[in-house]
Amino acid sequence: MSGDTLDAIRQRFRERALADADALSAALKAGDRARIEALAHGLAGAAGIFGFNEIGGQAKAVDQKFADGGTPSSAQIEALIASIRRDMNAYS
Rank of each mutant, 00 (worst) to 15 (best):
M1W: 00
S2M: 12
G3L: 10
G3F: 04
G3Q: 02
D4Q: 14
T5L: 12
L6E: 15
D7P: 00
A8G: 09
I9W: 07
I9F: 11
I9Y: 06
R10F: 05
R10A: 05
Q11P: 01
Q11K: 11
Q11N: 08
R12G: 00
R12D: 02
F13M: 08
R14C: 06
L18I: 15
D20H: 07
A21H: 06
A21I: 09
D22A: 15
D22I: 08
D22L: 14
A23Q: 15
L24C: 12
L24A: 11
L24V: 09
S25E: 15
S25F: 03
A26M: 05
A27M: 03
A27P: 06
K29Q: 07
K29N: 02
A30D: 15
A30E: 14
G31A: 05
G31L: 10
D32K: 04
A34K: 15
R35Y: 04
I36W: 06
I36G: 08
E37C: 03
E37S: 07
L39H: 04
G42Y: 11
G42W: 03
G42T: 06
L43Y: 07
A44F: 04
A46C: 06
A47P: 07
G48T: 09
G48N: 15
I49Q: 14
F50R: 06
G51I: 10
G51T: 11
F52K: 00
N53M: 11
E54V: 12
E54K: 12
I55P: 02
I55R: 05
G57R: 01
Q58G: 05
K60P: 02
A61D: 05
A61I: 01
A61Q: 13
D63C: 11
Q64C: 09
K65G: 06
K65D: 04
K65R: 12
K65L: 00
A67P: 00
A67I: 00
A67N: 08
G69Y: 10
G70M: 14
G70Y: 15
T71P: 01
T71M: 14
P72D: 10
S73L: 14
S73K: 13
S73T: 15
S74L: 08
S74M: 10
S74C: 10
S74T: 14
A75M: 12
A75W: 13
Q76G: 09
I77A: 03
I77E: 03
A79D: 12
L80M: 08
I81S: 01
A82K: 11
A82I: 06
A82E: 14
I84Y: 02
R85M: 07
A90R: 09
Y91D: 13
S92K: 13
S92D: 13
